[in-house]
């Protein structure tokens, strides 16, 4: 382990010229990457072109992919995942931007306290998160329904109704990741030059107009960054549906990653699971590419 991490010491200076140096710098990363990422990725890609019955593997060409494109559960999973994506990511990023702007206010004291409080959900262990949310969202004795009953709202079947189950996932993901994105966006805000705001103030622009004419455009690269990351995260959404709803009721919260897991780890169809994975990778790659094009990658080049 240490061998790869220790760089060849500076003594071999002859070899390390500005021309060769970058190869030394990337060597540890690239070596590790080839062995522990490329290799497994390629072998699971091969799996996706095979089929296996009773432990005997044989070449199947595109059969798994053909099956996938005729699989209504896969389309259901795709639909669910995209529904959650389209609703959740904008909500979360909007809240995160608003929070970040509030947190950036000069009037605020105890900023560290707030930052930690908002960031905490992102660092919870999955097991804790699972149990706490399961019990809090329980229809009959969950705290959430109990609290809602104070304001006269009837109990909601949070995890057992096709619509509310999606809502629950969205709430859970938003709870978990808003603070994380807020912290990233806050970092971006703090890098916006105060001069811009002062100039705008002199021109008589109000706070709201400043937000739209200065803050948002300046924040764009970071917003893009958080949007791409959140999109990838949501497209790979697994933990929440796995723990909270198990994809139910009646597959209304089945996501692509969960469907992949079920096929591989429950039905032992690793070949089909691999095919699902690679279709997912293509979707993610396309979507990230489109996001960068549409939102404009100011940052690159």
């Amino acid at each position: 382990m240490n061998d790869t991490a220790k760089k060849p010491a500076g003594k071999k200076r002859k070899f390390v010229t500005p021309k060769t140096a970058p190869y030394f710098f990337i060597a540890p990363a690239v070596l590790l990457f080839i062995v522990f990422t490329i290799y497994p990725v390629v072998s699971s890609l091969i799996l996706s072109f095979q089929t296996s019955t009773a432990g005997v593997t044989s070449f199947a060409g595109l059969d798994n992919y053909r099956r996938l494109f005729a699989d209504d559960l896969f389309y259901q999973a795709l639909f669910n995942t995209f529904t959650i994506l389209i609703v959740q990511v904008p909500i979360m990023l909007t809240i995160a931007v608003v929070l970040a702007v509030l947190m950036n206010s000069a009037l605020l004291k105890m900023r560290s306290f707030f930052r930690i409080a908002f960031f905490m959900p992102a660092i919870t262990a999955l097991v804790a998160y699972a149990i706490v949310f399961m019990i809090m969202l329980d229809e009959n004795y969950g705290f959430v329904n109990y609290a809602l009953s104070w304001i006269g709202i009837e109990p909601i079947a949070w995890l057992n109704h096709p619509f509310w189950a999606k809502v629950s996932l969205i709430i859970a993901i938003t709870w978990r990741w808003t603070g994380y994105n807020m912290v990233i966006l806050l970092a971006g805000l703090q890098n916006i030059s105060q001069d811009l705001y002062e100039a705008a103030s002199i021109d008589g622009a109000g706070k709201v107009r400043q937000f739209f004419s200065i803050t948002l455009p300046q924040l764009k690269p970071i917003l893009l960054f958080t949007a791409v990351l959140s999109t990838i995260g949501t497209l790979q959404l697994f933990d929440e549906p796995f723990i909270l709803t198990n994809g139910g009721p009646n597959n209304s919260t089945l996501t692509i990653s969960l469907y992949l897991y079920l096929n591989g780890f429950r039905y032992f169809d690793f070949n089909y699971a691999s095919a699902i994975a690679y279709v997912l990778v293509v979707i993610i790659a396309l979507l990230s590419f489109i996001q960068m094009k549409v939102l404009g990658d100011d940052d690159d080049k």
């Binding site: 990422t37 699971s44 990838i232 990653s257 992949l260 690793f270 699971a273 994975a277 990778v281 790659a285």
Partner: peptide, 15 residues
């Protein structure tokens, strides 16, 4: 390297 971010982790688990 960036593409690797997009790969769901369950699929590389077994290899």
């Amino acid at each position: 390297l960036l593409l690797a971010i997009m790969i769901p982790y369950h699929v590389t688990l077994i290899p």
